[in-house]
């Protein structure tokens, strides 16, 4: 009896340990960046492609103030309220003390320098596609921005979502980075895929999620309920978005639709980022969107 009990306990302990090991926070190998030098000008393009300012600028910041990444915006979701952290180069309150590998761990693995899981409100499932050189360039650009001494605040989440350890399981279910649209793509379409599926993290809102917050990839970019507030996010697959590639590129530049209405809601903010990209990137996004499978 006692033997079977201790055997059972051993099984539970081993299973638990295996589970913890399988779901442990993963960090990037600093060796990845050994031969790379970050370049701030290139990094600015990555910054706008990634839409960092949309969440990390102070709430209601406009113009140049959007480059002060003090955080503080509150994201209200079904899981609770997330308070966006300070990622300005302040060494104490921001991420000025981070190495490039620390930034890469955060962006691609959702892991903090201290080795704990980030919540997927930070879209690392998309950023996981980021190339090492781009991360190095982004770090160089972020280091040029003004510091902010705003102290981070804790998220306000209900149990069990306030237990970061469960995020390891979520990450396991979400899977590693793999391209959604595959096959014979032109270099322009591939660039667009990198921007849409990766840095631009368009799928985070435009793809519906299940109850666990995992994206339904069979409905890639087919829209759904707004994860953050009221309204719906539109379907941007060719089944619904019938704009020309030129129309899509113009929308991402000025926010004007083909009818010369303008982007509103959260998309107005997205256009503030995509409007800073070079034309070729907006055209690449448009070319990629034309290749996405049509979903009704």
């Amino acid at each position: 009896m006692r033997r079977s009990l201790s055997a059972g306990l051993a099984v539970v302990l081993i299973a638990g340990a295996a589970g913890l090991w399988l779901t442990r926070p993963v960090k990037s190998d600093p060796e990845l960046f050994a031969g790379l030098t970050g370049e701030a000008t290139r990094g600015e393009r990555i910054f706008w492609a990634g839409g960092c300012a949309s969440c990390h600028a102070a709430p209601d910041a406009t113009g140049e103030a959007r480059l002060v990444l003090s955080g503080g915006e509150r994201l209200t979701t079904d899981f609770g309220t997330f308070v966006v952290p300070n990622i300005s180069p302040d060494p104490d309150h921001g991420i000025g003390g981070w190495s490039v590998a620390d930034l890469d761990s955060a962006l691609r693995h959702g892991t903090s320098p201290e080795g704990s899981h980030y919540y997927p409100s930070f879209p690392y499932t998309s950023y996981a596609h980021a190339e090492a050189q781009d991360v190095a360039d982004l770090k160089a650009f972020l280091d040029t921005l003004p510091p902010s001494d705003r102290a981070d605040e804790p998220h306000d989440l209900a149990f069990p979502f306030n237990q970061r350890v469960i995020l390891g399981g979520w990450k396991l279910l979400a899977g590693g980075p793999s391209w959604i649209v595959e096959g014979d793509l032109t270099p322009e379409e591939e660039r667009g895929r990198y921007l849409v599926e990766g840095l631009g993290h368009c799928g985070e809102c435009h793809t519906p999620r299940n109850g666990l917050g995992l994206r339904d990839e069979s409905r890639w970019l087919a829209g759904g309920p707004n994860p953050e507030g009221r309204g719906t996010i539109p379907n941007i697959t060719p089944a619904k978005l019938d704009w020309s590639a030129g129309d899509i590129a113009e929308y991402l530049s000025s926010g004007f639709t083909p009818e010369y209405d303008s982007a509103g809601g959260q998309m107005a903010d997205v256009v503030r980022n995509t409007g800073q990209l070079p034309d070729e990137d907006r055209r690449a996004i448009a070319a990629y969107l034309k290749r996405v499978p049509a979903v009704e």
Binding site: S254, G264, R272
Partner: peptide, 20 residues
């Protein structure tokens, strides 16, 4: 100028117009 003008329209619509 089109980009700046679009940003002008968008910044108002973002906050003050009901989203479809």
């Amino acid at each position: 100028a089109m980009r700046d003008l679009g940003a002008g329209c968008g910044s108002c619509h973002e906050t003050y117009r009901q989203k479809d």
